[in-house]
Amino acid sequence: MINAEQLQKAFTKPGSGLFKHEQVKAVQDVSFSAADGAVTGLLGPNGAGKSTTLRMLATLIQADSGSATIDGLDIKDDLLKVRQQLGFMPHNAGIYPRLSARENITYYARLCGLDKAKAHSRVNELAEQLEMTEFLERRATGFSQGQRTKVALARALVHQPQTIMLDEPTNGLDVMATRGLRAIIRELANQGHCIVFSSHIMQEVAALCDRVAIIANGTIAIEDDLDGIRRRTGFDDLEDAFVEAIGAAPVGAAPVGAALTGVSE
């Protein structure tokens, strides 16, 4: 369960000219919530502030203002407890190429406090669940993107976190691998986990998410379920709805009589 309230984050970046710095507001006003047992999509174009939002929630960077709780724990106060509750798979998460898939996952298991025996059985369990037994003992050099993503996902799940955040997990995956990953994510949600899934592809989100928060220019433009988004933007086609939501048009100015039909895909 995630509750984010008016999160803000600005970065200083080197500007034009020596010793000149400029402030870049990566996240201006992000409020959204993600419930247990559901997949919440964080949808937005590149540079909208998705990764920064997830990094703040994962306690990797500190928010300038605003607040958020994960399973009732404040991200500013209970860093270690929040992280214990949280499985985070960042965008392009790297794995260690000289370690085997098992060693990669075991490393994280041990760092999360599992003893050797428990780590071993947990890795076996995850390998079964994510269908990675055939390459489990192989070193990660030369793994396909799909295999790497599975290892990274297994690492994020190794301590059985209640809340799972995946930053663009389907990037670089082929159709079959993407479908496989969707099935896994759906299964995790059915088990009662709270899942936040970020993407810049509307279809991706539509195929998987129960709820969507559309983010643009560091602000949540709209947050609703798929039908609600269609209704409020006035577009039946979800891609049009997405473009509408992130565009200049103020949210809520939906044309009268907007379709209220179900998912078109």
């Binding site: 994962a58 306690t59 990797l60 992280r83 798979m89 960042p90 998460a93 994280y108 760092l111 990274a152």
Partner: peptide, 11 residues
């Protein structure tokens, strides 16, 4: 190699 971010997200 982008492995620092997930590492620092651990408890």
């Amino acid at each position: 190699r982008m492995s620092l971010e997930p590492l620092l997200a651990l408890p």
